[in-house]
């Protein structure tokens, strides 16, 4: 039994690490602020979940429950940060238009001037 749990746990940890690695590679390889933001925040979310799941199998139940909180706060906070950074990047002109197939937000900007930020 312990053997199976160890193997599953090890697989989860490795998959989680792989997911984080892919995010890091994306951070280097992707061309624009917005696409890098996707690589920087999202594969880590899945990677973190997998690593937490793998860890939870190896620690006492008490500590495993606390790991649930880590996952919960990741889910709650990651979108907020990602959205704030993405929006600021767009508004400050850090998004190069040539990496976008379509930019309907810019089209809107041409139709009507952007209202001042609240």
């Amino acid at each position: 039994m312990t053997g199976v749990a160890d193997i599953v746990s090890a697989c989860l940890l490795l998959l989680g690490a792989l997911s984080c690695l892919l995010g890091a590679i994306g951070l280097v390889r992707l061309p624009s602020m917005l696409s890098r933001l996707q690589a920087a925040t999202k594969p880590q979310t899945l990677g973190l979940f997998l690593i937490l799941a793998g860890t939870a199998m190896r620690v006492p139940t008490d500590s495993a429950v606390t790991l649930l909180l880590v996952a919960l706060f990741q889910v709650i906070t990651a979108p907020v940060i990602s959205q704030l950074v993405g929006r600021s990047a767009y508004r400050s002109g850090a998004v190069r238009p040539e990496v976008l197939v379509v930019d309907e937000l810019a089209e809107r900007g041409r139709r009507a001037p952007e209202p001042p930020p609240q």
Partner: peptide
């Protein structure tokens, strides 16, 4: 969606990398 899209993003990273494109939709 988290799992499926992570695979999708990974594919973009490995397959296209610097030539990856995106879009902004209304």
């Amino acid at each position: 969606d988290l799992v499926a899209s992570t695979l999708g993003v990974s594919w973009q990273i490995l397959r296209y990398g610097p030539r990856a494109r995106g879009t902004i939709l209304e």
